[in-house]
Design a protein around this nucleic acid. Structure first.
Lengths: 128, 128
DNA sequence: TGTTGCCCTGACGTCGGCGTCAAGGACTAC
DNA sequence: GTAGTCCTTGACGCCGACGTCAGGGCAACA
């Protein structure tokens, strides 16, 4: 399949695929006319990348998963390097969520003491 | 006081102060030699901005607080526009935290089913 | 008088993940 | 043959909040 079809099937753009290729994440064979040519395996790689991106992984963090798939594993997350990324991400997320909850609490306090008319559990915005 | 002292007292840089000025958030009188001149009120404005930035507010979101202080209010968050920003931020944070918790849960599941040796409550990284 | 240390403006660089445009080649349908 | 759609590479644009550099002025002290 050509780049346009692959992009469409993965719900992304040709620009994105060329960008991934420039980053060394996705490679392509070439047809005689110079067009990139992909197969179902490439689609699986691409879907792995996109899923992780949707989770908030940056591109570099997806690399171990891609290499794991390229190495022939049926899942990208069965290799040790991928599991390490998962674990680091969990720690990152826990820290981030903790920070955000602290900020949320602080803003709640400030809102209550400054505007003080809405209870803290009122999260749907002002009643207006 | 001059820009270097103000920056030091607020724990930031002169570049940052000039940037805020370019965005219309912080104004400065000028001495005869052209140097920017600030007073304690400017320090309070700047600290208000920095506190909100630390909370994750973007610069535009700090504007109502700054204008509230400029209008003579002792606190930047007592004006209606500031309270609106607080409320929007709470909603944003709740949504974001919810998303992050969902991602965290999903990664936890994937880690458990792929590498399955660490219990879900193990958040301190691999035992090695 | 020279040296240091602050200040000035203007402008380009940074980061990530692409969007968008330009100029052209390839292929299909009619 | 020509219109239309796909593909190619290369390169600049974007966002936010500044960092960093260039080239120069002002002030104080030895």
């Amino acid at each position: 399949m050509r780049i346009g079809e692959l992009a469409a099937r993965a719900g992304t753009t040709t620009r994105t695929l060329r960008y991934y290729e420039s980053r060394g994440l996705l490679s392509a064979r070439r047809a005689q006319n110079g067009y990139r040519s992909y197969d179902e395996g490439d689609l699986r790689l691409l879907r792995q990348i996109r899923t992780l991106q949707d989770f908030g992984f940056d591109l570099e963090e997806t690399r171990p998963f891609v290499e794991c798939l390229r190495a022939g594993h049926p899942q990208g997350d069965t290799c040790p390097a991928s599991l390490d990324v998962y674990r680091r991400k969990l720690a990152e997320l826990d820290a981030l969520i903790g920070d955000l909850r602290a900020v949320r609490a602080e803003i709640g306090v400030r809102l209550a003491s400054a505007g003080g008319e809405e209870p803290l559990c009122e999260l749907e915005g002002p009643k207006l």
